[in-house]
């Protein structure tokens, strides 16, 4: 483990280090969003390792997309819930 090749955590940390200048150039508000995205990649580190890819950043990007999809799914669900509340409220008023 990590004897001949770096661990996936080390690899992701190296990628973040490489992106330091990129992050530094962003606006403060965008830096926070980038930090959130990179943090979300860490939530799926075991899955990224399982891809056994030479360049695991692709897996990291997929993990980030997955978290984005989850956020969208949650927002959609909240929208549906709100619409249902709104419709029942409208029905009561009519």
């Amino acid at each position: 483990m990590g004897r001949t090749v770096p661990t996936i955590t080390q690899t992701l940390n190296d990628i973040e280090a490489q992106l330091r200048r990129f992050r530094h150039t962003l606006r403060r508000s965008d830096q926070r969003l980038l930090d959130d995205l990179l943090a979300s990649a860490h939530r799926h580190i075991a899955a990224i390792a399982e891809t056994q890819a030479l360049l695991p950043f692709e897996g990291a990007l997929l993990a980030i997309l997955l978290e984005q999809a989850r956020t969208i799914a949650q927002l959609e669900q909240r929208l549906i819930d709100l619409e249902q509340v709104w419709q029942s409220h409208e029905r009561r008023e009519t």
Partner: peptide, 16 residues
């Protein structure tokens, strides 16, 4: 080979 090591030289499964 390198690909063999990437696939095999790993520890236990650890989630976050």
């Amino acid at each position: 080979t390198l690909s063999h090591l990437i696939a095999r030289d790993r520890g236990g499964l650890i989630y976050r």
